[in-house]
Design a protein around this nucleic acid. Sequence first.
DNA 1: TGGCAAAATGTAAACGTTTACATTGTCGCT
DNA 2: AGCGACAATGTAAACGTTTACATTTTGCCA
Lengths: 344, 344
Amino acid sequence: MVTIRDVARAAGVSIATASRVVNDSPLVAGATRARVREVAARLCYSPHGAARSLITSRTHTIGILLPDLYGEFFSELIRGIDQTAQRAGFHCLLASARHTGPLLEAALRSMRGRVDGLILMSPEFTGELSRRTLPEGFPVVLVHCPPSELPCDSLLVANDRGARAMVGHLAGLGHRRIAIIGGAAGNYDATERLRGYREALEECGLRASPELEAPGDFGEESGARATRRFLTLPLVERPTAIFAANDCMAIGALSTLRAAGLRVPEDMALGGFDDIPMARFMTPPLTSVHVDISALGARAVTRLLDLLQGRAGSAPYRETFPTTLVVRQSCGANLLTTPRRVAV
Amino acid sequence: MVTIRDVARAAGVSIATASRVVNDSPLVAGATRARVREVAARLCYSPHGAARSLITSRTHTIGILLPDLYGEFFSELIRGIDQTAQRAGFHCLLASARHTGPLLEAALRSMRGRVDGLILMSPEFTGELSRRTLPEGFPVVLVHCPPSELPCDSLLVANDRGARAMVGHLAGLGHRRIAIIGGAAGNYDATERLRGYREALEECGLRASPELEAPGDFGEESGARATRRFLTLPLVERPTAIFAANDCMAIGALSTLRAAGLRVPEDMALGGFDDIPMARFMTPPLTSVHVDISALGARAVTRLLDLLQGRAGSAPYRETFPTTLVVRQSCGANLLTTPRRVAV
DNA sequence: TGGCAAAATGTAAACGTTTACATTGTCGCT
DNA sequence: AGCGACAATGTAAACGTTTACATTTTGCCA
């Protein structure tokens, strides 16, 4: 492998000068610069990243720690992150896997000396863990994590407001018995969406009731199961609208409804959450709550870069990403018009 | 930041011994080891990645260079790669962006000293470029790239066989006029699929004809456009089945057919390629050619690791990933039975 | 021409590790 | 007691850079 020393020797200059040329330092004469450039090109020299990082303590790399890589959410997030990082001349170091306990700790540790900052998505990340694994004041942006006592920047999604928008919309269409298929127990998004649902019911003067709240786990099958349960209710207690806490469960619900011979939206209105790309291709197209995930990722990066360049306020920055209700046809509104977007 | 020198001092041993403990070397006494371990834990020491890489010339990182990050294909690929890499104790360094010409060169260069090997997906990667940017014999696995003269390992997808399976299947259902909506001109997958289509026609004793081959660009709208064109043909020349070179265009085709009042599959059979998750939720569910992308990614990693550990044959390894025809309902087969998978 | 500032270049330390080699200590054997 | 073998530990060089500081060269002016 050709090093800067080889370049220097071949160009008849000192290593320092060669380094200066490579780094576009202004304190080198034009002729020298040209010569070194030419030699470097001829020898196909490229600087050694690790060596550089070691001395400058800069890696130009952002670490991404995710609980998983499966599904639309993560791919969009990564896309937003990578695109923005790339533009700023940064690389992305990926570390997924269901990081929990000691694994999470090891994963965080392994980032030492490899990244300049971290975009982190893990509900298990605590202040204590941070103290143990990361250098004091290491730049971290939390994404889509339950708010905590951590003095970190944190980006959230307006789960509750999104849920409220959906339920409010359904109520506005005249529905009085609106059911919810909840997400995984203990899951942060799930509880927030459930909270939004209950708040919205109250605001609309509707009463929450246990038989209208079915548990789910964000999987398709759980949506189907919950729906079958709703259908066992006597007709007068049966919901006229179902709000699934994510689109996947809405898909399960739709299959079940269709299998039961019910028409959507005429016999049962349906709403989802996440607005995955598939939503608009369903039959009928699914009304859902949209979140611009890649923008969320992009924002995480710009925020991290601010932190890195020291142009961030000292107070931890919190931002809640807005959701948008995308009205299509599964809710029964505007059956014949084009989808509308309603800011929340 | 706490270094190994701090640990050594606090434990009253030399740096060498501390290093040995950290690296689980057997040549250190039990008592010493315990003491150093304890100190390291107390001081929250973690080794500095760059420093390590510099001396060992091992980064335990795999570089991934992709043309884009948008869509199912890439997210699945990354998932397969990351999962397998993670298991082997490797990280993934991501670099996407439409890398072309000097940008591609810069991207490759920037990997120097940061990764142990590269998984590369870029049709522009030539032997000459490799020589200019990468150290001689640097481990590279090409994924989903046109086969080239490069002495690199290369993983391909059986585009042509997949296309042949689809066309053969449609012909087997009795269709005599089978149209194709092609992919982007110059795109490798596109030409391979088109080739497979033509071969299959010939094998089935059907004649190819220009008006049954519509150009597309892998986008939804282009699928719609091509379909409209087919519908302008006089009835006796009009195709009875359409094979879209990817699912996205099949979606566009489906919308157009529905808008024109044609039933799928009764009036027009439809097939896609890629089997994106959405395919099974379409109405009717789309018959498509499935590729296990994450397995492709996983294989790229295992192959790269073989290369890294020197247990790879010297001859460049080539593998073509099989495709699977997933028969659902849009093709008109087994309208009432469950989807079948047919190995190709 | 001599002197001085500024420009160009060079020297060497530093970054945090690993590891070949040298040194010391321990034990068992004759 | 003396010696050798082996286990445990230490010393120091090396990895490929950047950069503070020192030195040399150049250009300009009196």
